[in-house]
């Protein structure tokens, strides 16, 4: 099972991961990224590159399937305006034994951060907004998987 979904509606973690526990394996692992109140941020806004987004996320899942013994994987990513406290991304993986699902989940979120065409803008209570800069720590984590 491979699932990629770009959503402009609030993400339900349960729905994003649905089916992963019915694949006959003994392990489901997941990561949820949540919009965070960084110094007065009230909401974030996510822009993406339609067409490229879906294919780049499916490519990451295909690469994860090639590297680990997976039964399923899912990536659900929010776009548009996301209030603080709401999920931005849910990544999940299912496998027979836990190591494959755990490592694949880390791989998927680390590589999504550097490879998938999303851009994040932070909105503040005073009405100002600023594009978030890419972090070198994200590049460092992503390069661990290459």
């Amino acid at each position: 099972m491979k699932r990629v979904l770009i959503s402009d509606e609030p993400i339900s973690t349960e729905a994003a991961l649905s089916g992963l526990s019915d694949l006959g394996g003994g392990a489901v692992s997941s990561f949820t990224g949540i919009s965070r109140d960084d110094g007065g941020v009230t909401a974030i806004e996510l822009e993406h590159y339609p067409r490229m987004t879906e294919s780049s996320l499916m490519q990451l899942i295909d690469e994860a399937f090639a590297r680990w013994a997976l039964l399923g994987a899912a990536i659900v990513h929010r776009i548009g305006r996301v209030a603080v406290g709401e999920p931005v991304v849910v990544v999940g993986a299912a496998s027979r034994h836990r190591a494959d699902a755990l490592e694949a989940t880390a791989f998927l979120i680390d590589r999504l951060k550097t490879d998938a065409p999303f851009w994040k803008k932070e909105h503040y209570a005073d009405g100002t907004s600023v594009w978030v800069d890419a972090k070198s720590s994200d590049d460092d984590r992503s390069s661990l998987w290459s």
Partner: peptide, 29 residues
Amino acid sequence: FALDQAMVPLDAALGDAHELAIFPPVTGG
């Protein structure tokens, strides 16, 4: 940069690509 929806480096040849995308480093997740 992306040529026809695939990331490429600055020195990539345009060839017969139809679409060139130009953007800042990505910040999803």
